[in-house]
Design a protein around this nucleic acid. Structure first.
Lengths: 340, 340
DNA sequence: TTGTAAGCGTTATCAC
DNA sequence: GTGATAACGCTTACAA
């Protein structure tokens, strides 16, 4: 019925000018109470909706932030997105989701599209594939607030919210050591990503701190899938010494590990303890619940959003570079809980 | 470094007009190959990015669609979103996520904001709370394509993609009957939502088709949580006849049911069979995997997106009303798989 | 083939 | 207080 009601239509109806209508709508003090009311009333009556596009074009603010993640259908990322949206929504911001599927072309393309869409900021968890930072540099050059979460690149002046993956790897390993395990295998994923490299380093440090010799063949790099976990166990079975604990940098891999261990008749945790990473929902829901390192996705998203808000509200040009590192928390469950 | 490069800047550099630049950028045929190349080249050199806002304002097309869901951190919805995004991305559309948290105010507000943002369409799974459709009517009045998925309202002329919840309830119940169960309890959730009402109706129909008397006290309505499932079992325990099967309209409730049944010492599925609904990832990952009805979220999202694309491409005013109903699929797992 | 100019819906800066 | 007008960056008849 109503095609496109603009402030001009309201102005015409009221025999005033569009400028006055605009003022009324924006609570401009320079306007009489009467006209304001009148305008608001007829605006409602005519089912008028502001055109944010026009507003955005005029003001240079779109009230949209772009969030770039590898895949949205992972609990970890979905939880972060939810936290970001929840935090930004009351401030009038809307969130555009972009998935990279861990492919560099899509990542570049996404950044590009977001810039074209004049977003007020970009929150990004970089893909496995991101190598150089030239595309990111463009964002910075354009002075569009950029914030890393979870997976970051080291860039000067850019804020980030991550967890201490090193510590995560450390506490997981330490817990296994304290449970009496001596032969601790670490299954890692793509170590070109800092998160996996750091977890691995944490593992090594814990071993060294507790005087447990590091064995190179006890670090296995696999894909982040359940099947890869099963395969890893099969491979280990062929080696000379079977471990008494497995610390996986991924919950999915840990699940595969557990399934295969059971299949082979090992008792968990009596013979082999298992620890995962991410605290995916299923780890706590399982009958044999899985010990895992929590990454506080909710907190991470919330803080990332807050850092963004700070950045846009700091009127001046002062660059605030915040590197926020959250502390991971170990959730000890049955898969590593030895009764003594 | 570069503030805001516009087509005027390019025009000035090349000593031509903005119009020509625009044409070159948009592959307008009325332009010489030379100028086009020249323009594209310098555009790249100057790191020019189109301003979609201005384009959108001019053309009336924002290339953004809004997706409204209760909560994004549920696998079901996250999967749908992923499918929608994957389908729409190649067509140049971007997706704005809006969460209602099942609250009517946020739902109305979200619709409002999306309309103000001039989205090209709205895909919505309505909240528990949505009662009248007046806000939706506004969307329709504005001729903004509107598509329901999963949870819908009956509105003339509006397309929807849902699953056959009635059938879902039916096949789940039928499966239990065929497994030899006679005393089948149905635990449902908020039946003001069609999805739950329909599943319940399917349950009743299956009972009647197989000549199993319907017992009113065998239908329990609870909240959609794990704890509610536990409570339900406790309540049943007090009643005179304990069931030999429980069909829950929610996987989470089913999980709670299973946990409590085990706790009370019941053998699953020998003594009590359990079936859930949604095919949440954890149902298959559990040691005691849970039989569940799959709702094809991926397909649902993909089709919803396709319906939207059809709707915007059908140039004319012809209203296409598509009511697409997907067939649910029962995944039979250990929680109801009786060996005979 | 290219230039000119109007307009998309707002808002801000002037005047009055 | 209110009105007129320019401007945000782009597209597109209409001219040339």
């Amino acid at each position: 019925m109503d095609k496109k009601v603009t402030i001009y239509d309201i102005a015409k109806t009221l025999e005033i000018t569009a400028a006055t209508v605009s003022r009324a709508l924006n609570n401009n003090p320079k306007i009489s109470a009467k006209t304001r009311e009148l305008v608001l009333e007829t605006a409602k009556k005519m089912n008028y909706k502001q055109n944010r596009l026009a507003q955005a074009l005029k003001s240079g603010k779109s009230n949209i932030v772009g969030v770039i993640i590898p895949k949205i259908n992972r609990t970890f990322f979905a939880t972060i997105i939810k936290a970001i949206e929840d935090e930004l929504y009351p401030h009038g911001y809307h969130v555009i989701i972009c998935q990279t599927d861990d492919r560099i072309e899509r990542e570049i393309d996404n950044i590009d599209t977001l810039l074209k869409a004049q977003v007020d900021g970009i929150l990004i968890s970089i893909s496995n594939a991101m190598e150089d930072a030239s595309e990111l540099q463009r964002v910075i050059d354009k002075k569009v607030p950029l914030i890393f979460f979870d997976r970051k690149k080291e860039l000067k002046g850019i804020s980030s919210v991550t967890i201490d993956d090193f510590k995560g790897g450390y506490i997981a390993t330490e817990h296994l050591i304290n449970s009496g395990c001596k032969q601790i295998v670490h299954i890692t994923c793509d170590r070109s990503l800092d998160i996996y490299k750091d977890r691995c380093e944490g593992y090594k440090k814990a071993l060294s701190d507790y005087k447990i010799p590091f064995r190179k063949e006890y670090v296995i790099e696999v894909k982040n899938t359940i099947d890869a976990g099963k395969e890893a166990v099969k491979k280990l079975k062929k080696s000379d010494t079977f471990p008494d604990a497995i610390f996986s940098a991924s919950d999915y891999v840990a699940l595969g590990v557990i399934q295969e261990l059971k299949h082979k008749g090992y008792k968990i945790p009596e013979e082999v303890s298992v620890v995962g990473f991410s605290n995916e929902p299923f780890t706590s829901l399982m009958e044999l619940s899985i010990t895992s390192v929590d990454q506080s996705p909710k907190k991470m998203g919330k803080i990332a959003a807050q850092v963004f808000l700070e950045q846009v509200s700091s009127s001046s040009e002062l660059k605030i570079e915040k590197k926020i590192v959250l502390t991971p928390k170990l959730h000890i469950r049955k898969s590593s809980l030895k009764m003594k």
